[in-house]
């Protein structure tokens, strides 16, 4: 195992985060905080409690998930797409490093950034709305699994994309709508029955539901099912990345 290479990639990527601190950390924290101010403090005070939880507190897990999903995908996709775009990927391909080690470095760094971001947003939310975390271990588990899974998805998108537009399509046109419609701002009990059924096909629902359960012990679907879905998604991403490196898809000619 080329641990020096894994460490080099990881530190290189993390250094990029500190260099672009405002864009990487400050900006998503501020934009998520605006949700807390608007939906938590302002509009939220006029919305009735959901499952015995104030609306401002209710939306915190969903907003953290939104931020983690978006940032995991964009960080990981950019980190591998940019070397392809500039041509520096030649170095990665000619280095004595396995596919697994490449993924460990890039996905590890992208997931770390997302987890740090999620924890900062959580701390920031505490300034605006009352918070409780009933199951800290499960909260961290969902946080880590989601960050890793979606960083893998981002890595796949970064490999697949051959222009900046494609890089943006999946986060903006797929991930964001799924999170918004996956129960970030409401419980699916509040939807008409037909939409409740349709929402069950939305993978983000399971992530948000499980994550919210770890905070307030309220959930739209069973926790076991949420965990199974996260693990299934993780497995699909791992299999896709394995296939990419096995075939050299969009990496090697």
């Amino acid at each position: 195992m080329n641990l020096y290479a894994v460490k080099a990639i990881y530190l290189f990527e993390m250094a990029r985060t500190w260099r672009t601190l405002f864009q990487s950390i400050v900006s998503p924290v501020i934009s998520t905080s605006l949700y807390f101010v608007v939906f938590g403090a302002a509009i939220g005070s006029r919305i009735s409690e959901i499952g015995g939880i104030s609306y401002g507190s209710f939306i915190v897990p969903g907003l953290i998930m939104l931020s983690i999903l978006m940032n995991s995908v964009s960080n990981a996709s950019f980190s591998i797409y940019f070397p392809k775009f500039t041509g520096t990927v030649y170095e990665l391909m000619s280095a004595p490093i396995s596919s697994f080690e490449i993924i460990l470095g890039y996905v590890g760094a992208a997931a770390t950034k997302s987890i740090i971001l999620g924890l900062i947003i959580l701390a920031t939310a505490g300034l605006f709305v009352p918070l409780q975390i009933a199951h800290p271990f499960w909260m961290l588990l969902f946080l880590v699994l989601t960050a890793v899974s979606f960083s893998l998805l981002g890595f796949i998108i970064g490999i697949w994309a051959d222009n900046f537009e494609k890089l943006q399509i999946v986060p903006l046109l797929i991930v964001t709508p799924l999170v918004f419609l996956g129960g970030s701002f409401y419980s699916i009990d509040m939807l008409p029955p037909i939409w409740q059924k349709i929402t069950l096909f939305n993978p983000a629902l399971y992530l948000i539901s499980g994550f919210r359960w770890s905070f307030y012990e309220i959930n739209d679907v069973g926790v076991g099912l949420s965990l199974a879905m996260v693990l299934l998604f993780l497995g699909l991403c791992v299999a896709t990345v394995w296939w990419i490196f096995k075939t050299g898809y969009r990496v090697k000619s």
């Binding site: 020096y4 290479a5 460490k7 080099a8 990029r16 500039t86 170095e91 990665l92 280095a95 004595p96």
Partner: peptide
Amino acid sequence: ELTTDAFETVWATVTFSRGLFGK
């Protein structure tokens, strides 16, 4: 091609390469 990182320092990019090659 002159394929280099743009925003890294010379020291950082050369140090990165050494690590990438397992040293």
